[in-house]
Design a protein around this nucleic acid. Sequence first.
DNA 1: TTGTATGCGTTATCAG
DNA 2: CTGATAACGCATACAA
Lengths: 365, 365
Amino acid sequence: MTTPVTMRQIAERARVSIGTVSHVINESAGVRPKLRERVLEAIRSMGYQPSALAQGLRKNRTNILGMVIPDITNPFFPGVVRGVEDVAYKRSMRVILCNADNDPAKEASYVRELRSYHIAGLLIIPAAGADIAGHLRAYTSASVPAVCIDRVPLGWKGDAVLVANADGAALATRHLIEMGHRHLAVIAGPLKLTNAEERLNGFMSALKEAHIKIDPEFVQEAQFNTESGYRAALRLLRMLPRPTAILACNDLMAFGALQAARELKLRCPEDISIAGFDSLEFTKFTDPALTSVYQPGYQLGATAARLLLQRMDGMRSAPEQILLPTELMKRSSVARPPDVQQRVGRPSRSSKVSGKPKGRSRSSQ
Amino acid sequence: MTTPVTMRQIAERARVSIGTVSHVINESAGVRPKLRERVLEAIRSMGYQPSALAQGLRKNRTNILGMVIPDITNPFFPGVVRGVEDVAYKRSMRVILCNADNDPAKEASYVRELRSYHIAGLLIIPAAGADIAGHLRAYTSASVPAVCIDRVPLGWKGDAVLVANADGAALATRHLIEMGHRHLAVIAGPLKLTNAEERLNGFMSALKEAHIKIDPEFVQEAQFNTESGYRAALRLLRMLPRPTAILACNDLMAFGALQAARELKLRCPEDISIAGFDSLEFTKFTDPALTSVYQPGYQLGATAARLLLQRMDGMRSAPEQILLPTELMKRSSVARPPDVQQRVGRPSRSSKVSGKPKGRSRSSQ
DNA sequence: TTGTATGCGTTATCAG
DNA sequence: CTGATAACGCATACAA
C-alpha cells in the first residue's frame, strides 16, 4: 500500500519549504547551493516524481496530446501514430490514442471529452462526413492547437498535413495507361473523405488528359477495407467487357481485388492489372507484389506533430496545409493488357490512342 | 480565447451551491427535483464537462489506463491494442499508449512516469531482458493493478494473459513432420522473451517426440522482425545440406524467410517449406499464402483489459495466468519435402522414422 | 435536502 | 534567496 511521494515530503526531508522545492525543480528562482543540494538529494533518494495531474490542474495544461484516428487496426495508421509519438516523446509529451471507428458520434464524443484532460494539442484523422470542424474550433479558440492528418473534415480551414493524393492517383493511372490499358476501373474510397475524393479526381484527370473515357460503372465506391474492396472488385470483374486494369485507392482494397481476381480464376497481372495506394510494407510479399502509390505515413504523423508543437510554442501564423509527396512504386501486379500483349511482341509505348471502347458492347454486371 | 466551464459557473447559473451541483452529478445525495432540474439544465446549456484532471487529483485515481508495448508498427500489436481499447472504452476508460521499442530503459522510464498520471491500471507487453518486474510491483503495491500481455518479465508472478506458445509451435512442427520433413530448422525470436523461448521449446519437444534430432546450427535466434528473419533464413538456406522446412517463430520473420528463399531461387513450398507464427491478416495474400499458427491478438488485449478491470473493481484473488489457445492455419507454404515428393506418389503418413540425418555430411554455412 | 469548508499536489505571487 | 499562501476544479465530510 505504497503512496506516491509528494513535494511536501521532499520539503520535510530537505528541511526547506515546499516553495523552495518547487523552485529548485523548476529553476524558477536561484536557490543557495547548500539547500539546493539537499533538495536534489531528497528527490533522488525518495524517488520523487511530480504529479502530472496536479501540474496540469495548476498550469491548466498537461503534456498530453490527444490523437483520434479511425482504427489502429488499419495497417496504414500505425505508422502515422508512431510518427507523432516519436516527435512527441522527444518533447516529453504523451499521447492518448482514440479509435473513432469512422463513427462521427464516437469521434465527436472523443474530441469533446479530450478537453477534460486539458490536453496540450489534438491530432485527428477525421471520420467521413463528420461535422467535427466546430468541435475542433472549440480547441483552437481555447488556444489549444489542433491539426488534421491525412484528410480534413468539411469546413476545416485550420492546420492540416496531407499527402498529394490527386498526384499519386494520377501517377498510377498514367502508368496504367502507358502500359497500354484503355479500359480502366477504379475502386474509390468513401467519397465523403477528402483523400478518397482527391484520389478519384487524380484518376479521372489522368484519364481525361489521355482522352480516355470511362464507363460510370467502372468507378465503384467502397470502404477502404479488404472486404469492401473484394466485393467491389467482384462487381467490376464480372462486368462484360471487363476492365483490364483496376486502381484500388488503398492497399487494403487492392488486396481484396487480388483475392477477387484469384477466385474468378483471373491471373494478375496477365488477365487483370491491379494497382494500390499506400504501398504498405506488405505489398512486396503479396502474390503478385503489388504496384502501389507510396504515401509516407510516418512522415505524415511526424510532420503533423511538429506543426502542432510549433503552434504550442506560440508560433501563430496563418493555418498551414502541408502536402507531402507521393511516389509510384512499380512492382509486379501491373502488366500490359491481354490484347496488347498478344498483338505486339515488344512493349509498344507508342502513341496515345483514342481511348474509346472500340465497339465493345457493355452489359451491366 | 474560450475557457472551459467549471462547476462554479454551473452553480451560479443554477443559483445553487457548488456542492449541490456536485451532488446532482454524482448522485451523492438526494436533491430537490426543482433544483436538480435547474442544475441539469445549466449543465446542458453551458456544455459543462468535469475536469478529468481535478477529479483525478481529488480521487487520487484517473480513468486512464497506461499501455506500454514494444512498437505499434509491428503488425501483431495493433490488434492487441484495439482489444484493450474496446473493453476500456465500454468502461469509459482511456488509454495512453507508449512505444518502448524493446528498449528496457525507455520501458522503465515509461512505466515510472505513468504513475504520475495516477493511472487506473497498467497493461504491458514487456521488452526483452528488462528487470521491470520491480517497477510493476510498485504499482500493485500501490493497489493499481498491472497485467502483462503476451509475455512476462523475469520474476513476474502477477497477472498475465498469454497464448499457448509451446502448443502452437508444436502444432506447426508436428505438421511439418507429418508432411515428411526430417530436416527442420527454426528461426526463434529473442530468447530472452518468454514467448520466444516457449515457442522454441514447443518446436524442440515436437521434434523429440518424433525422435528427430536437430543440428544446433539449424536453430537460429533472430529479432522478430522481417529483416532479421531474412538474414537468419539466408544463413539457414546456404547450409549444406540445407533444411527442407523452416519454422519461423513469428510471421514477420517468416516473410523475411520467404524473401530469402526467393532470392536464392528456391521455390516455396516445392524446395523449402516455411511456417510462421501469428497468422496475421496478410498471410493469406503472401506468395505463397503462409501456413502459420494463429494467435488471437485482439482477444489477448481484450482479456487482459477485462482482467485489469476486475482487479480495479477490487476482485483481489490470487494472480491469474490466463492462457489463450493457438491454432494452426494450414495454407500453401508447406508441402512435402523434395525427396519424399519424388519418392512416394501418395502422401505417406506412415511410420515415424528415426530422424537421423542419413549419413549426409554437414558443413557449416 | 442544501451549503460550507477542506484538501488533493502543484505553481506562482508576494512578503520577508 | 526563502517561506507562506492562494488558487487550479472537484469531491466529500460535516454543519445547518
